[in-house]
Design a protein around this nucleic acid. Structure first.
Lengths: 202, 202
DNA sequence: TGTATTTTAGAACGTACGATCTAGAATATC
DNA sequence: GATATTCTAGATCGTACGTTCTAAAATACA
């Protein structure tokens, strides 16, 4: 064997992720990447293949470290209705406090990369499915414990939440003001609390 | 005065719009544009300024000819609830029959251009406001004639519809299958038909 | 310690980008 | 018909792109 790598591969990957996240795939140059990763172009190609392969790694890193982490923090530790609320609260809070308007790397890639790259389309579609699954599990559990209405099937409510999340990510890149983003989220969450079918209200 | 222009400016603008629509702003080169517009680079710069100014014209052209036209076709001629349904039906149908997965130029630009160009952010935000206004007018009218529930305020339902539209446009670039897109739209439209608050159901 | 192997840095490859310039062709006004 | 103006085509500008190459530095195993 031979000389070991000088740089921290995980730190370099995180730096690459941040580049792709704030500038997008095409607009991020290999020179940008190398500079922010603290390595040279040759090392980048040695360690990660080419730009597209590095992007794939960076996207996986993002999904595991941001989306996956958020679900893992909220789903096991909060009641289902609260987990959904906390999920959206965090996304709104991060969006409002993001002067670069980076949005979400997954959704950004769904629009920039997926349409003309079937491998990424498949990966992204799978992650969107995981998100829908998270919402569906929360809604179903909330319907069982009575904290979420059963006026709509859990699958339908989950898709409404997924749609809300995607629209939130779109809006956050154009108009990331609290009133705007909360105006998108609040009516969606209100649906979860709609009265049950059984007793009359008025 | 002097020699008149040889090419049809409106046809050229439509061709430019199609380029930006299918490839995005950055990925569309001035040479691409000139070729599809049927003119030379010099004529393009003479007639439209630079690439950014041409994109601005192309985006306005898209908004007027696609979004504006769709609203103008449905809002005056259909009952409010039907206008909303026809709007989404058309977007789903066009998305499914779009092998290039172009999506919507406005939403694509909201993610690609708006975050780092405040002028475009303002323009796009304004158009999103017009869309929300269309939904709000339809919902309010539908609530008046009883075809749409008043279990939620018209503004909230309008924002839910706007969110649904944005998510539809995101999903259409990644997974433009009828089942997927209709699965996003159907639960949102179902909300409009929710029972009114007054009589008990079960 | 010697050698094979993989790292590093940075120059260099060919290509494409947005934009401009140089001519020459064409036309509305005088 | 002369002239001033705006059009056209295509070469050309400087810059940046993704990628590869060259050579020197460094280390695990014999």
């Amino acid at each position: 064997m031979a000389r070991p790598r000088e740089f921290d591969e995980d730190a370099a990957l995180s730096a690459a992720m941040r580049c792709f996240w704030s500038r997008g795939y095409e607009a991020t140059s290999v020179r940008d990447l190398a500079r922010h990763m603290g390595i040279t172009g040759a090392s980048l190609y040695n360690a990660f293949g080419d730009k597209r392969a590095l992007f794939r790694r960076a996207l996986d890193h993002y999904v595991a470290g941001t989306l996956g982490d958020r679900i893992a923090r909220f789903e096991p530790s909060l009641p289902p209705r609260a987990a959904i609320g906390a999920f959206f609260d965090e996304v709104v809070r991060l969006s409002v406090n993001d002067p670069d308007r980076k949005g979400c790397l997954l959704i950004n890639s769904a629009l920039e990369v997926a349409p003309h790259d079937s491998e990424f389309a498949q990966v992204i579609s799978g992650v969107l499915g995981q998100l829908e699954g998270f919402f569906q599990r929360c809604v179903a559990a909330g319907q069982r414990d009575g904290s979420i209405t059963d006026a709509q099937p859990a699958g339908d409510l989950a898709r409404l939440l997924l749609a809300t999340l995607m629209s939130l990510r779109v809006m956050a890149r154009t108009r990331p003001e609290p009133a705007m983003l909360e105006g998108l989220v609040r009516p969606a969450l209100a649906l979860l609390d709609s009265p049950r079918l059984s007793p009359a209200v008025a």
